[in-house]
Amino acid sequence: MLLHLFKNTHIAPLAACLALASPGAAEEIWISNEKDDTLSVIDVATLEVIRTIPTGERPRGITFSKDYSVLYICASDSDTVQVMDPETGEILHELPSGEDPEQFVLHPDDRHLYIANEDDAITTVVDTETRKVVAQIDVGIEPEGMAVSPDGAIAITTSETTNMAHWIDTETQELFANTLVDSRPRHAEFTAGGSELWVSAEIGGTISIFDVATQAEKGKIEFAIDGIHPDRVQPVGFEFTADEKTAFVALGPSNHIAAVNAETYEVEDYILVGRRVWHMDFNSDKSLLFTTNGVSGDVTVVDVANREPIKTIKVGRFPWGAALRP
């Protein structure tokens, strides 16, 4: 009787969620757990963790190949990028990554990984087919944020202690510009068809927006949450909605994410999530947003249309990165 009751209450939301999801697709959100050396796989339909997969030491940045056949994992303390078969969870091979790879971005050619080597002040470019290092580029201290323009011409590394965005010409693999941002830049993304670059600064508490053509700063976003000291409002990861009209910004130890109007640069909403929110990703129709909350060790699921948190999912210790597998 009890069991029956439990089943019923469990099935109802499950069915509702399934109805929302695209038919036939078993979408998943993959989460890297920095202090558990594992990945947690969340089923988007049920919003439950369905698999936990061991990785190398201190997994942080994760990204899928364009066809989702392999997952690349920055195993920072193993000093390698692991290549995983997402079906089996097996590590197929490792890529030479330089020391302490923290975050990376896959070039639109689906072949070259641009990797930030946090301890070495270097960006390493690796060819995932030949498994060889193509180039190593000297950048600032503690490189972290990585982005590549939609046309693939420009790669960006941000360096946390040097407080710069470094602009890399992907043809020559050389820096062609270095622009100052506020303290401790963490994350970078191109938007508006590749004409704008956004860079978050954790300690500065801002996002700087650059015109890509001129590398000139064209705007700056500041955040303020009632009842929380500005020092604790620390922007880190951010992602854009499908129409690129809204950016969701993780605000670290303020335990909120912001919804920012990407055209006016105004903050429209603050949404309460878990503790020390870090990175995020959407499901495939971008109706749900999954944030990694490092200190509380969970993932908050946000309803994008209503801008409301709808569920908290326990994952491993210090969840860091999130990646969609449709």
């Binding site: 050619d109 693939g152 011409a153 420009i154 043809e171 062609f176 890509v212 053509a213 590398q215």
Partner: peptide, 17 residues
Amino acid sequence: MGGVLPQTGRALLAALA
């Protein structure tokens, strides 16, 4: 495929150099 910078970017690159 990419690899070509926008013209303005190139011009600035030269200027910086």
